[in-house]
Design a protein around this nucleic acid. Structure first.
Lengths: 134, 134
DNA sequence: TATTGTTATACTCTATAACTATA
DNA sequence: TATAGTTATAGAGTATAACAATA
């Protein structure tokens, strides 16, 4: 059976979640990926692009376009760091913060519904964290 | 934390598994996707391309190139169905069968090692099946 | 008219390499 | 010399639409 194969299961579970998140976040003009970028920026002290990329575990060449798109929509700003002018410090705008808070609530609700069929959703999430070593 | 986000977790767990499977299957000239196609073909009666695509839950336009590549390597054959000449019936060659059996053993071993850190690997797999409704 | 398979095309995501500006 | 960011490019993987052959 195809559904015994771990790769098949992970791939299609991820595709399902991605679809449902995209639908639920569409009113905010965001997808799950955009929202993850915002969440990396929102937490704690200002980060350089490289640090944002590292948190998301994506390549530094991928993060530029994502930030361009968020910046065009007025959700983040990039400022040259005064201490090290090579670094672009990324911060949320006021609009970015309020959009993040609303969209993040929606995302949490989507996750709850997505995992509702499981006997123990927290345990499932812990399993995934264990596999990633996080 | 990024590792609370379900999308992040699923994406990177899948990426890890994909990498490890690719490494382990490289000696057979296969990746996990090729092997999944072979597994869809091997089970039971001969299938049309459309049925193979349906089992894998991929689009029918994606399966053609995959089968081309497997056919070039002599692992599968496509034959016009005599009953319905629109249909391409896909079957494993002898080489395809033996390659499948060896590579499938390797894949199962990769999965076992991949899930070794979990307290209950079967339960994790069942959770994924529940989420897919399978 | 509908279905199977193919082809052309495009979009997303990712990765590599070369470039610039700064350190 | 090394680092942060950008740009160009290419490779997967996927999806849509149009087409030919067949039913």
């Amino acid at each position: 059976m195809m559904s015994d194969r771990l790769g098949y299961l992970l791939k299609h579970v991820l595709a399902l979640l991605t679809d449902e998140q995209a639908k639920a976040l569409a009113p905010y003009g965001l997808n799950g990926r955009d929202l993850a970028v915002l969440s990396a920026v929102v937490a704690g002290e200002p980060l350089s692009q490289l640090e944002v990329a590292s948190r998301l575990r994506v390549d530094r060449t991928s993060i530029g376009d994502l930030l361009d798109s968020l910046e065009e929509r007025g959700l983040v700003e990039r400022r040259r760091s005064p201490e090290d002018r090579r670094r672009n410090v990324v911060v949320l705008t006021a609009k970015g913060e309020s959009t993040f808070e609303e969209a993040e609530r929606v995302r949490l609700q989507v996750e709850r519904e997505f995992l509702a069929s499981l006997p123990d959703a927290d345990r499932f999430r812990e399993d995934l964290q264990l596999l990633l070593g996080e």
